[in-house]
């Protein structure tokens, strides 16, 4: 099944002087893929990710998400899809301040219509990223790497079909960055679809497929010949 199918997708900004942030993007994402969207700053990779992540709408073109025409969905339907089918990991973590790790992870479940046992599910995902010992710590009491792992746990808590990671290693030291990449690879190994946005070739090579963007266009779409497997100490127990 095609998870995402886009055809001639355009995104312009401004009314009179139009800036093309995205020009005629066409590609498909299948279940279980691990794609890196690469490009320098201003290449349109973030714009593309925002549209794919249903945070923004395309100006023109076709976009099917799980075979549903996104242009026909209203804001509330998009919110529900984001909640149930998509997990986000941001460069700057975006955790709630003055809130515990556990409460941050349960946040998406508050808006969910699925009936799940909030607490046990949150503990389960936190365990899978190796943070069982930090449940009741406040977000200002943990390190950057741990923060990003909390963010990954939050992205996973509602069992989404796809994870979007926007420069997830950008604010981390190399060791913590490696840990995050290892978690993403492990999730992909387990069958989760992952789309990674990065400007680093090194990070992009951890994915199975690399889309390269320049000036709002996809200039190449290649399968990674030698996917870089991340090896760190076995942090996930």
């Amino acid at each position: 099944m095609n998870l995402i199918e886009i055809k001639n997708l355009k995104r312009t900004f401004g009314e009179e002087i139009k800036t093309y942030a995205l020009k005629n993007a066409t590609f498909t994402v299948k279940q279980g893929e691990f794609i890196a969207i690469m490009g320098s700053s201003g290449s349109g990779k973030s714009t593309l990710m925002h549209i794919l992540g249903l945070l923004d709408r395309a100006t023109k073109g076709d976009f099917l998400f799980e075979e549903r025409d996104v242009s026909k969905l209203d804001d509330d339907e998009l919110a529900t899809l984001r909640n149930e089918e998509i997990g986000f990991v941001f460069q700057s973590f975006n955790l709630l301040p003055r809130t515990t790790v556990l409460d941050n992870v349960t946040l998406p479940l508050i808006y969910s219509q699925k009936r799940v046992s909030t607490l046990s599910r949150a503990k389960e995902v936190l365990e899978s990223v190796g943070l069982s010992h930090r449940l009741n710590h406040y977000t200002n009491q943990i390190s950057g790497g741990e923060k990003q792992r909390v963010a990954v746990a939050r992205a996973l808590v509602n069992r989404p079909s796809i994870i979007f990671a926007d420069e997830p290693t950008g604010n981390l030291d190399s060791k913590s960055g490696a840990q995050i990449m290892k978690i993403l690879q492990k999730l992909n190994d387990e069958g989760k679809t992952v789309i990674l946005v990065t400007h680093e070739t090194y990070t992009a090579e951890c994915a199975k497929r690399i889309l390269t963007m320049k000036d709002g266009e996809i200039v190449s779409d290649e399968i990674t010949k030698n996917q870089r497997r991340v090896h760190t100490e076995d942090l996930i127990k």
């Binding site: 945070l55 804001d75 919110a79 984001r82 986000f88 975006n94 946040l107 808006y111």
Partner: peptide, 16 residues
């Protein structure tokens, strides 16, 4: 503002 953006990204509707 960022918190509102985050909540919306995580699936909060306008009404929430």
């Amino acid at each position: 503002t960022r918190e509102v953006g985050l909540r919306k990204a995580l699936g909060a509707k306008n009404s929430n």
